[in-house]
Amino acid sequence: MGRFLSVRLLRDLLPALSLVLVLAAIAWLNPRAISYLGFTLMLNLAVPIVLATVAQMFVITGNDLDLSIGPFVSFVACVGATWLVENPLVGILVLAVSIGIYALLGWLIQWRGLPSIVVTLGMSFVWQGLAVLVLPKPGGSAPDWLLSLMNVKSPVLPFPVVASLVIAIVAWFIVMRTSYGAVLRGTGGNAAAIARAGWPLPVLKAGLFAAAGLFGVLSGLALLGVTTSADANVGNGYTLLSIAGAILGGGEFVGGIVSPVGAVIGALTLTLAASPLLTFLDIPPDWQVGANGIILIVVLAARTRIGRQAART
């Protein structure tokens, strides 16, 4: 059993190790970045990315994938920049209905046995189109309460760090500590066993997707709060980023193996590696995206290597 613990530990610590490495590199290159102000600037966009990554994590828990989270975040930001400001009740209603649509999709996917990659691919067009309809030209403004929230000057730790901690704790609690979280994770590990024990699979799937929708809404609002205005494409890159972050954080596509804390760490790592680290390394911004790819490859290859090593012993 001790043997398992060490392999499992190594594997679980990979995301944290990558984050530490990136932080160490930043500290070495530009010590002044390791400061309250430095982190606030570097992690400017962290909160929306973390929320989107957690949303994706919920979907991956059930062995699915959400290719529409990016455009959904854009849509939410657009709604927030328009209706939420002009007519708050309508805005809230629209966002609530959107979460309902996500739940409905989850139910449909389970009931009809549909491939989530195709359904969410179609929905990405829908959300994108809706975003364009809501906000044809970049603009709008963020509601005051949102602006105040995202600009909180928290003591000791910068706001993005505090917010990420809170998100990590909440997600961890829901998925890993509650009794229903266990059942939800079970659907990814052995759906047949869950069904045999009498649980209704379509309802569970709807729940996972509803959670994704909820965190998607939070992500869109957070993004609006940070950028103060919106456009229909603002969140589109979050689809691939969220997948990368969730997998980097220890999640796997099959088996119901997810780590909420890991997902948050993964998102933070990607946020830091994307711009700040490379800027300090004097690597041209052209390579920002590529760095994310390389990090993903290295971490996943390491994970596979550790897994094979364990199998051999």
Binding site: L240, A244, G293, L296, L300, A301, T304
Partner: peptide, 22 residues
């Protein structure tokens, strides 16, 4: 490297994109 195709092609797309930009 034993990486699932979705992530493998995703990662390579990031790298290729950077190569292209550069």
């Amino acid at each position: 490297l034993g990486i699932p195709p979705i992530v493998a092609t995703l990662s390579s797309s990031f790298v290729v994109q950077s190569i292209d930009i550069a």
